[in-house]
Design a protein around this nucleic acid. Structure first.
Lengths: 193, 193
DNA sequence: TAAAATCGTTCACTTAAGTTAAGAAATGGT
DNA sequence: ACCATTTCTTAACTTAAGTGAACGATTTTA
């Protein structure tokens, strides 16, 4: 499992054995059962997550209704906005599947960055990449219809459609579960006719 | 004008006179007239922008139609995704108003980061903050209706509604110009009735 | 394994956005 | 100052998403 993390890191910086051991000594690898809530609305936290196996989701609860805004699967990292802004969390994070996740906290990261400056570089590059990637995702969302968004998702993350409940997918696409059902039926109809 | 930039930077790291002079010697301050196109679709670039005065927008052209996805105003920074991914740009950038902007390129930044490691730290923090901020914006967009988005914008960036053409605002809100007109009329109607 | 809860789909109806077109208002260029 | 262009609004019609309700299928859990 550790190798997955180190393979990921090696795409950005090369680590010595000492550095690897320093990371391992932090004891950041954790398993969670499906449904486990990692973060609740209103809670303060300094934790960031990196998914090694499984899937986690972020969701808001508005008028008693869950609004899912993101899914993180294998080799994806999540630092909740509340960690950056140092305010209580506005959303929940929970496990869609049994998952193996590294959990680190920002004090730890400050310490590691101080000891190993190359970490600072990796964090900067990672943040810049994620920012650019997320910008593209946001732009695609804005400029397309729910149907186009669904077809786009089918292309880019077909696994999500299999492993995630439809009603969570629907709010991820910005629509209601019933509309997603209808939209899928519409697409099938087009393909036949 | 330079002071605006240094005031902004001072929120993240403190610079010596030497460091300030190093930045000034790069000659990054530029003025552009309203309508100037800074970047075109298909073009390769290494340039990042920081708006000191004025307003720039990013937009895609889909089937001959402009789709505006973002506005950047005073003290806001933009590194186009294509700079990070090193691919041709998928969108245009142009000036909504006469603007004063610092234009830097990524080779310059690599050099500055090498000379002054504190820049690396600032870039990391800035990227992390922007990532968190953009995540919140994306989530708000996903979880609200066009009407809610408009009312939200009225709260958070009332200046934009004044300084930007309605049809550009409309696509920024993910709808057509006619729908924005109608939606505004609907809101006025509610306030009276 | 039986009862309860969650999940996915369908339907009828409502609401709002997309489309096409027209015209008024504002802006820009010469 | 005038003409051309762009911008904004309105209207009638079409299309698709929201809503509330029902029902079977699946999953959970007691």
């Amino acid at each position: 499992m550790q190798d997955l993390l180190f393979d990921f890191i090696s795409k950005y910086v090369s680590l010595t054995e000492d550095e690897k051991n320093a990371i391992l000594s932090l004891d950041i690898f954790h398993s969670f059962r499906k449904g486990t809530v990692l973060l609740k609305e209103g809670q303060k936290t300094k934790e960031s997550y990196f998914v090694l196996k499984g899937c986690i989701r972020t969701y808001y609860v508005v008028d008693g209704e869950e609004k899912t805004t993101a899914f993180y699967t294998e080799m994806e990292a999540l630092t909740p906005p509340c960690v950056v802004s140092k305010t209580p969390s506005e959303y929940y994070i929970s496990c869609v599947e049994d998952s193996i996740i590294t959990v680190s906290n920002s004090d730890m990261e400050v310490e590691v960055n101080r000891k190993f400056p190359k970490f600072e570089v990796m964090c900067r590059i990672l943040s810049e990449e994620l920012l650019a990637k997320q910008r593209i995702d946001f732009d695609e969302f804005k400029t397309s219809s729910p149907e186009q968004r669904y077809l786009n998702l089918l292309q880019k993350r077909p696994d999500l459609i299999q492993r995630v409940p439809q009603h969570q997918l629907a709010s991820y696409l910005g629509i209601k579960a019933q509309s997603l059902s209808r939209l899928r039926a519409r697409i099938l109809e087009k393909r036949k006719g």
